[in-house]
């Protein structure tokens, strides 16, 4: 693995790793690490760093839904244009064009089910190209971006062994 790819790998598993610790783990020096990360950022490879949150453990209402979206394209409007319009809503946390029975998979977040369904029916469904929406509310999250949400398995190894 080249150095940049190795750094990307390390950031994928822990984006909060300091440049010092990244240097210690890769054998690069700190300045090199900082320069390579800057490149990853300016090339748009790394688009941001955000916490993975288990909302069940935050003392406030938070609702997530996955929305399937079907659209009809015409001569003037393509996927790109529809996507551009939808990404602008702050309620939309992710938007992907997918293969299969529907066109877009949209993740929507809000403070209540009412909030989310209102948003879908008032902001998404009326878009002229949208022909159908199916909303799936998230009931339980088990794993998010590679991180398991269950209680952590303890380390049951002997504390000292040969």
């Amino acid at each position: 693995m080249d150095a940049k790819r190795e750094l990307l790998d390390l950031l994928l598993s822990n984006a909060r790793e300091s440049a010092t610790d990244l240097a210690r783990q890769t054998g690069l020096d700190e300045a090199e690490v900082e320069a390579l990360i800057e490149e990853l950022e300016s090339d748009g490879v790394v688009r941001g760093y955000k916490a993975v949150v288990d909302w069940d453990r935050v003392d406030e209402e938070h609702v997530q839904a996955e929305v399937e979206l079907n659209v009809e394209l015409d001569r003037e409007t393509g996927y790109e244009e529809i996507a551009r319009r939808i990404t602008k809503f702050p309620q939309v946390s992710s938007l992907r064009l997918v293969s299969g029975n529907y066109d877009f998979a949209v993740d929507v977040e809000g403070k209540s089910m009412h909030d989310v369904s209102n948003f879908v029916s008032e902001q998404i469904a009326p878009i002229p190209e949208v022909t159908q929406t199916v909303t799936h509310f998230v009931m339980e999250t088990y794993k998010e971006r590679g991180i398991e949400f269950g209680d952590r398995d303890g380390d049951d190894r002997l504390s000292v062994s040969p």
Partner: peptide, 8 residues
């Protein structure tokens, strides 16, 4: 423990 002789 850094005394463990098996994988974590």
């Amino acid at each position: 423990s850094l005394g463990v002789g098996e994988p974590d």
